[in-house]
């Protein structure tokens, strides 16, 4: 019954958010919102730019790349010198070079993969000045790229797709900061810790033991962690701890925040291209896949863990090992599905303790490219890449030059879309192959056999998709995994962003072809089905052999597939 009411509340709140936040974001990016103009204008003056100075896709991408380089170095330097910086009551030393390298890339790419325990590694200054800053910046970059790509569909014969500096400034100040501030207050009000006073020690009067509890500026970081589909928690145990996720309400709000912007961006898309039905078609494709995966994972976790059942223990309350009893099996499975399908990776449970089927649900959600609904911005620009492939296939079927929103999809667009859709699977599979073929790679997983393989596959799937969630059974803080993981995150992020911007630029230059009777419609059920088919077929064909070696074998070993 709890799950039923959670779903009803999610549908209502996300429905309203889709409509109104989606519409607001369109107004923000089209320059019709000015209530923070007094902040915007000085920033543009400082950067030597203005909303009128639009950029070609190459200049837009160049600005984004330079900005990313500065962000990388900024984060790396803070982590390396944190021992000499203020706000370090625990006197934590500098973070090691390899871990700083991995963490800088991780937060830049919106992955938030953490090869460290936050409370024992990062000072307050690092958490606030480096990591939380990136938790605002990286989703802003993702959303800006998605908007720039959408402008490619919305404009006619335009050499430009917007201004990168203006887009991220507007995204930060009009969208991310105000929403994160409001939800930060709610999280702190519910009991999430927010202090700069350092750790607290308590003596247990029953056995005389002294406990040291990690604290910090957690509550406000929690809001942007979920809203920006970041996932990097202040504490090692992430949203499973009451200090980050204190109540059922914060657990619900976490799920809501994860899904809010990625879903709402489809409305923004529809409004920008002049047809809400076009956005609704993408929303329908996202929702149908999300609902299917959520049902599969919830069903798996509501059942028994086959390994536990094989040991002769028969639970009647689902697979509760590794889960918070505060949240239960089904809400935890819903949180995990939302987290893995939105490029977030936050966790309110141990994913390593999920049933093989449940783990498969999480893995597969990432393997289909994180488009259901995907990360902030990345979900939209990635599903648009799949949509281009879908109309290309549709065009081949009916023997016409494919069109999407009146723009002819020709060889260049298909090449760019092909590259954008294949970068992630190639990265994940090649890096997993290298890891299982080397001693350093095989030293990572804590388990042998198919579960150990799943741990490696999950790690690179998570990093290659900029998700950041971890199975939990992998020792990732080694030079091999720090460096290989960082490479996977960089390729997985920019190997898709740059083709997406190129697509936006190429499409913006084109004129619109008048609609005719033979035009392949992209706002109906046929298109939704075709897009879902493309997403599932690309994901299935590329990853099925790897899945077969991991979770499927593991489930079969326990001789109980469902």
């Amino acid at each position: 019954m709890g799950l039923f009411f959670t779903l009803i509340a999610l549908v209502v709140t996300l429905g309203l958010t889709w409509r109104y936040l989606g519409s607001y974001m369109e107004a923000v990016f089209n320059g019709r919102v000015h209530w923070l103009g007094w902040i915007e204008r000085p920033i543009y003056r400082m950067l030597g730019t203005s909303p009128e100075q639009e950029q070609t896709w190459k200049r837009y991408a160049g600005a984004m790349i330079v900005f990313s380089f500065v962000s990388l170095v900024f984060t790396y330097v803070i982590l390396r010198i944190q021992g000499s910086l203020p706000l370090n009551p625990q006197r934590l030393p500098a973070v090691g070079p390899a871990l700083s390298f991995n963490t800088s890339v991780s937060f830049l790419t919106n992955t938030n993969w953490q090869n460290y325990g936050g409370e024992t590694t990062m000072s307050y200054f690092s958490q606030i000045g480096a990591l939380t800053v990136q938790q605002f910046v990286s989703p802003a970059v993702g959303i800006a790229v998605a908007i720039a790509m959408v402008r490619g569909f919305a404009r006619r014969k335009s050499p430009t797709i917007g201004n990168f500096w203006v887009d991220i400034t507007r995204c930060m100040f009009y969208i991310l900061l105000p929403i994160a501030f409001i939800f930060g207050i709610i999280f702190v009000g519910e009991g999430a810790v927010q202090t700069l006073s350092g750790t607290a020690s308590f003596t247990d009067v029953l056995n005389g033991a002294t406990q040291t509890l990690a604290r910090g500026p957690i509550g406000f970081m929690e809001a942007i962690k979920q809203l920006g589909t970041n996932g990097g928690g202040f504490l090692d145990q992430n949203s499973a701890t009451p200090f980050e996720n204190p109540t059922g309400l914060t657990n619900f709000l976490s799920i809501y925040l994860l899904l809010s912007i990625p879903f709402a961006l489809t409305y923004t898309f529809g409004k920008m291209v002049g047809s809400i039905k076009q956005g609704a078609a993408l929303l329908a494709a996202m929702l149908l896949i999300f609902a299917t995966f959520a049902a599969f994972t919830i069903n798996a976790e509501h059942g028994q863990n086959p390994a536990v059942a094989a040991a002769g223990i028969h639970s009647t309350v689902g697979n509760t090992e590794g889960k918070e009893t505060r949240f239960g099996d089904t809400s935890t499975a819903l949180f995990a599905t939302a987290s893995t399908q939105t490029s977030t990776g936050s966790a309110d449970a141990s994913y390593d303790s999920f049933t093989p089927d449940g783990g498969l649900g999480l893995l597969a959600g990432m393997m289909i490219g994180e488009v259901t609904p995907g990360g902030t911005g990345s979900g939209l620009y990635t599903i648009l890449i799949y949509a281009i492939i879908a109309v290309f296939i549709g065009g081949l079927m009916i023997g016409r030059t494919p069109e999407y929103l009146g723009k002819k999809i020709q060889a260049k667009e298909v090449k760019l879309a092909g590259l954008g859709s294949l970068v992630m699977p190639l990265t994940v599979l090649i890096f997993t192959g290298i890891a299982v073929s080397t001693v350093a790679g095989r030293a990572g997983p804590l388990n042998g056999g198919p579960h150990g393989f799943s741990e490696i596959l999950y790690a690179f799937t998570s990093q290659g998709n900029n998700n950041g969630s971890a199975f939990g059974g992998l020792s990732g803080n080694t030079p091999f995994y720090n460096i290989m993981g960082a490479l996977a995150m960089l390729i997985g992020r920019f190997g898709i962003i740059i083709p997406a911007l190129a697509l936006g630029g190429v499409l913006a230059e084109k004129d619109v072809v008048p609609e005719s009777l033979g035009t392949f419609r992209t706002d109906n059920g046929m298109f939704v089905g075709l897009t879902i088919g493309v997403i599932l077929i690309i994901g299935g064909l590329t990853f099925f052999p790897a899945i077969a070696l991991g979770p499927i074998v593991e489930q079969l070993v326990h001789a109980r597939f469902f």
Binding site: K58, A61, F69, Y76, P97, S104, L416, F494, G495, A502
Partner: peptide, 30 residues
């Protein structure tokens, strides 16, 4: 030792940035 690791990290960032700029150039010619 640590200095060398820091130096290699910055070199890695520069290399990644140049690779991205290179990808922009390549995709422009596709």
């Amino acid at each position: 030792m640590e200095f060398m690791a820091d130096f290699l990290s910055i070199v890695g960032f520069v290399a990644a940035t140049l690779a991205m700029l290179g990808l922009v150039k390549v995709l422009d010619k596709v």
